[in-house]
Design a protein around this nucleic acid. Sequence first.
DNA 1: CATCGTTGCTACAATAACTGTAGCACAACG
DNA 2: CGTTGTGCTACAGTTATTGTAGCAACGATG
Lengths: 108, 108
Amino acid sequence: MTSTPRPGKPVRGSKTGRPIMALLDLLGRRWQLRIIWELSRQPLTFRDLQTACGDISPTILNTRLTELREADIVTLTNDGYTLTTEGKNLLAEFMGLHDWAERWAKRR
Amino acid sequence: MTSTPRPGKPVRGSKTGRPIMALLDLLGRRWQLRIIWELSRQPLTFRDLQTACGDISPTILNTRLTELREADIVTLTNDGYTLTTEGKNLLAEFMGLHDWAERWAKRR
DNA sequence: CATCGTTGCTACAATAACTGTAGCACAACG
DNA sequence: CGTTGTGCTACAGTTATTGTAGCAACGATG
């Protein structure tokens, strides 16, 4: 099994250890962007998150959540899985994706 | 083979056709973020892009490039693969990822 | 205090995605 | 015409992801 990418460590496609490479590897894994997106509105339990992602397999959901927790993007609280402060900062960076997608839809 | 996600069409994990879901599916595929990132500085030929991504397999590179071209994010010019105007707009949305990654590196 | 619903999560076999190597077709150059 | 560089395809092997089943722990309810 592939491990969680970390800044300073080689990742798939880059041996330099540059932080951005670790982040791109992490976010480029299937469901990763979607999971962060679904948590942007409110915390969700494991099962609600599973449902929100269209019945994603629990195996891969847990793998992704472990990675996000190791990167301090997500944490598990009494309310369920929640974006950390840094997770919210990260989300803010690509919040504009929504508007881009809407324009994409209109262009075609 | 999975097809290119399009706004208005069901994608993996979402049957609603919402544009953001199509975009998250598209960008969530392996190498997709990295490819856009590598093209942010300057246009690259197929082979230079392959090298820039750490000798990514040409099979998957071509698949990803086809998807990016179908989404009008990337185009092939005489200078090589280039971000379109919309591609640059999209890049701008997550340009802040670099700074986030740098802070991530310092936190640990 | 037994039972029920809900939680987070794991096991495991099946399938789909990705990789790595080889090499083709085309064009420009000398 | 040989060499170099281009975009790309074929295909077998490996890895990642899926789908189903189900476990253990907890709190509420009867």
